[in-house]
Simulated scan of single mutants.
Amino acid sequence: MIVVTGATGNIGRSLVDRLLADGAAVRALTRDPARAQLPAGAEVVRADLTGSAADFAPLLAGADALFLNLAAGGDRAALALVEAAAKAGVRRIVLNSSMAVTDTPADENNFIARMHATVERAVRDSGLEWTFVRGGNYATNALAWGPAIRESGVVRDAHPGAQGVPVHEADLADVAAVALLDRTGTHTGQAYLVTGPEALTVADQVAEIGRAIGRETRVEQITEEAAAEAMSGPHLPKEAALELVRMFGSTVDAPAFPLSDAVERVTGRPARTFAEWARDHAADFS
């Protein structure tokens, strides 16, 4: 049995589909099973991961492996789940971590890196088998441009020339699935930096979405302050958002992270391009 947190999220939904296709038993955790629309083959369980650690035991009963995503409940919930998994006899954790983690003291200077590095340390210290999937430049981040593209075709961003290596959520799910299903130990103790196959600027990505939907799209530059204000929310304080915006600004000359072939090395096939992602999500921008 594989327990999937964040089962209705972009990565989790793809992961549930992939695991079921491979014949695995899946327990998919969600706050609202009635609205989850997950496959009938999954055991869909109501779970509020912001509850106490004692509430997690039934969720992990009989499980061999756990896919842990901080987006499902935050870092405190993730730490409690790691502890509960060890007590429940779970053998393996695959953590959806962040490419911001560098395994150096610099991790303490970055909000995103610090949060994920803390959970990584807890997983390592748990004594369980582990694999870290360090993504972060998610292609799905572009979904935030949906309202602007639908309304006017104009995306407002502080750094149109910022470069990234956007990765398709299905590729992150595929890498996680291989690690969760690993029977040889090949992926135990591995931290995979998972990227897309090409570096693209924000302007490149917006143009690619335009091609996918058959409309003219462009980027209009705004201040860093305005960009952080638009990005911030209940789970991302404005200070952290401004930190991210400034980090994006540092990638105008070159991507913050090198291209990685982890998708191909782990899954045996090339990573999906952003153009493929844009076509897959054309309905979200139309």
Rank of each mutant, 00 (worst) to 15 (best):
residue 1 M to F: 13
residue 5 T to D: 05
residue 7 A to D: 00
residue 8 T to N: 03
residue 12 G to T: 06
residue 12 G to Q: 03
residue 16 V to L: 01
residue 20 L to F: 02
residue 22 D to F: 07
residue 28 A to M: 08
residue 29 L to K: 01
residue 29 L to R: 00
residue 32 D to W: 05
residue 33 P to K: 06
residue 34 A to C: 01
residue 47 A to S: 03
residue 56 F to H: 02
residue 58 P to A: 07
residue 60 L to M: 04
residue 63 A to L: 07
residue 68 L to R: 01
residue 70 L to D: 04
residue 82 V to F: 09
residue 91 R to G: 04
residue 99 M to N: 14
residue 101 V to R: 00
residue 102 T to D: 09
residue 104 T to A: 11
residue 106 A to M: 06
residue 107 D to W: 00
residue 111 F to I: 08
residue 122 A to V: 10
residue 125 D to C: 07
residue 131 T to W: 09
residue 134 R to W: 07
residue 135 G to N: 08
residue 135 G to S: 12
residue 135 G to L: 00
residue 141 N to H: 15
residue 143 L to K: 03
residue 145 W to M: 14
residue 152 S to F: 10
residue 153 G to V: 05
residue 166 P to T: 03
residue 170 A to V: 15
residue 172 L to T: 03
residue 173 A to C: 09
residue 174 D to R: 15
residue 176 A to C: 08
residue 177 A to Q: 03
residue 183 R to M: 12
residue 183 R to Y: 09
residue 183 R to N: 13
residue 184 T to N: 00
residue 192 Y to T: 12
residue 193 L to A: 11
residue 196 G to Y: 01
residue 200 L to T: 09
residue 202 V to C: 10
residue 216 E to G: 08
residue 222 I to S: 09
residue 222 I to C: 12
residue 231 M to R: 14
residue 232 S to T: 11
residue 236 L to Y: 01
residue 248 F to L: 15
residue 251 T to V: 08
residue 255 P to S: 00
residue 266 V to W: 00
residue 269 R to Q: 12
residue 272 R to Q: 14
residue 272 R to D: 07
residue 276 E to W: 00
residue 279 R to A: 15
residue 281 H to P: 10
residue 282 A to R: 12
residue 285 F to V: 06
